[in-house]
Simulated assay, not measured.
Amino acid sequence: MSKKMEKKYIPLAEFFQNATQSEITLTYEAIENIMGQALPNAAYLNLSWWKKTKPPLTHYQSWFNANYHVMDVQLGQSVTFSRLKQTGIDENDADENTQTSIIRPIETEDARSFIRLQEQIYAQSEFEYYEPNVQHLTVQIIRKQMAEWRKFKQQTILLCIVNGEFAGYSRITGYKEQRLQHGATIRIGVLKKYANNGIGTALVESSIKWSQQNDIERLEAIIMAHNTKAISLFEKHGFTVEGKKVHSVKIDNEYYDEFIYSKLVR
C-alpha cells in the first residue's frame, strides 16, 4: 500500500496540477518557494531522490500524479520536468510561456522572502502607506507574528507564487476583540511585473475562501480614492462602499481620500 504524500509537498503537487507546459525547469530556490519549505539534503546530494517513483518516500507523487516525470537534474541548481504525452491531448496546444501559479498561506521559511517582496511592492506602488525600508521588519519579527496568528487563527498572509517566484500577497487581519472577531481587513499587494495577469483577482478570491473557512463573516478593505484598479477589482467581487475617509492619507504634502469597502462573505 502506498503511503500518503507528506504535507509539505502538497503546494508542489498543486503547482503541477495547475501546470500546462510540456516541459518545466525549476531552480531549487523556485521549488522551495513553491513549497514554503527547504528540500531535504538528499535532494541536493543524490540523483536517486529525484528519479525514484516508489514508496516508502512519496515526494515524487507531487509531480508524478500530475503526469510529469523528472527528465534532468543539475544537483543543487535546477530540475527539468517533462509531461508524459496523453492520448487525445495535442501537445502543440501547450504554451511554453505559460505562468503557473499557486496561492498558499505563508510558512515560517517564507519570512525573509516575504519581507523582500513587501519592500519591492512598497518601492513600486503609489498606493502603499509605507515607503521602502521604514518598517525595519526582521525575520524574527515576522516569525513572532506568525506564531501569534496560529494561536488566534483569524489572521494570515496568502502568498501568490508564479513559476517559483513570489509575485504578490494578501494580508488578512482579524480582530482580537470578541465582538469584532467575525470581521477582518484585507490588503492586496502585487509586483508591477505581474500586474494585469489576474494575480489580484486570484488573491481576492483566495482571501474570501480562506475567510469562509476560518469563521470570518465580513471582509473590509480600505482603498485610496484614486486607486481605480483596486476599486474595480473589489467591486467586481461584490464589495460595496460604506463610507469615505476625507484627507486620510498625506503623501508629499498632498491629501488623498480613502473609501471603505466591505463584503459579507458568509
Rank of each mutant, 00 (worst) to 15 (best):
E32G: 07
K85L: 10
T20V: 15
Q61W: 00
F81Y: 08
F114D: 00
A19T: 02
Q77F: 02
P105V: 08
R112L: 15
N33R: 09
Y60M: 04
D72E: 11
T25I: 04
D95I: 12
G88M: 04
T27Y: 05
Y44N: 05
E148F: 07
Y68E: 01
V73E: 02
E119P: 00
V70E: 02
R143K: 11
N65R: 14
Q61S: 00
D110R: 01
T98D: 15
I106R: 00
E107A: 13
S62F: 00
A147Y: 07
I89E: 14
I103R: 00
E126T: 11
L39N: 05
W50Y: 04
L57S: 13
T100V: 13
T108Y: 09
V134T: 15
F114I: 04
E148L: 11
E128R: 06
F127H: 04
H59S: 12
W50T: 06
Y44I: 05
L45Q: 10
Q145G: 10
S78N: 09
T53Y: 06
Y60K: 09
L75G: 02
T100Q: 13
E126Y: 07
Y129C: 14
A38Y: 05
T53G: 09
Q120E: 12
N67D: 15
K144E: 15
A42Q: 11
L47Y: 06
G88I: 05
E119R: 04
L84N: 12
I24P: 00
S48F: 09
N92K: 15
Y68M: 06
P132C: 08
T80Y: 02
F81A: 07
F64C: 14
A123E: 09
E107F: 08
V79H: 01
I115H: 04
W49R: 01
T27H: 07
Q124G: 11
E109D: 14
E29Y: 10
Q99K: 13
Q118L: 09
S125T: 11
L57C: 14
L117M: 06
L39M: 01
